[in-house]
Design a protein around this nucleic acid. Structure first.
Lengths: 123, 123
DNA sequence: CTTGAACCTGACACCCGTGTCAACTTCTAC
DNA sequence: GTAGAAGTTGACACGGGTGTCAGGTTCAAG
């Protein structure tokens, strides 16, 4: 599929998709005229990439990680190098802490929201 | 306490603490010579602020939110305005989605790490 | 009083994924 | 062939919390 459709199907801007390709996170064939032609599996891949970005990984790490992931296209997954495993383990810890932080923050919001709702109930 | 001690006790740089004060997230008395004098409750507050930043809230939102939070100093919590409650509810949804994303990403990392470990076991 | 640590303000730069604009080319359908 | 949608590359800017440096002032101990 072409970039416009991929953007529509993933909700990611064309700008970002071109950036992903330049960073080596996506591969695309080219038409005779130079237009990108993405495989169907790109949809899932883009969504994964977005999640990993949201998890605070930089594009370099994601680039290392992607070939080791079980792809929907059933491609042969590479095995992570020990160096990469160490990095990923560090990232995993960071993500764990981030989740804990988020839960605490969410609780704080809930408390404030509940206090406001309770106030409404009391008037 | 002064800024150096607060920085040490929270792990947050002096630079950031000054920034927080300028954004109205922290209040500090001043000595005759102009040095900041933070109350003891600032330690907890700074930690909360960091969590909220990590949760993706901007300083403006945090500034609105803080007075509505139950402080350790037992100060009277303000009640959030309906407008703020709406904002916070939106933020809450965002945080929920972020947590879900993080969990998925963590699972992906676990899978890759496990695959590498399994490979080690197979050799 | 002196000295060194600690603090002050202000300014500049960074990160890095993303938005946006410009100028041009390619594709598709009539 | 022609019009209009869609795609291409390149460049510049942003956000916003943080790092860092410069040049000066204050604090606390001797």
């Amino acid at each position: 599929m072409r970039i416009g459709e991929l953007a529509r199907r993933t909700g990611v801007s064309e700008r970002s998709l071109r950036y992903y390709e330049k960073q080596g996170l996506l591969t695309a064939e080219r038409t005779a005229g130079g237009h990108r032609e993405f495989p169907g599996s790109a949809v899932d891949r883009v969504i994964r990439i977005q999640e990993l970005f949201a998890a605070g990984l930089c594009s370099a790490k994601i680039g290392q990680l992607l070939p080791c992931m079980r792809d929907t296209d059933g491609g042969p997954s590479e095995i992570a190098t020990p160096r990469l495993v160490a990095d990923l383990t560090t990232e995993r810890g960071r993500i764990d802490r981030m989740i804990a932080d988020l839960v605490r923050s969410r609780d704080v919001l809930d408390e404030v929201i509940a206090a406001a709702a309770g106030d409404v109930g009391n008037r």
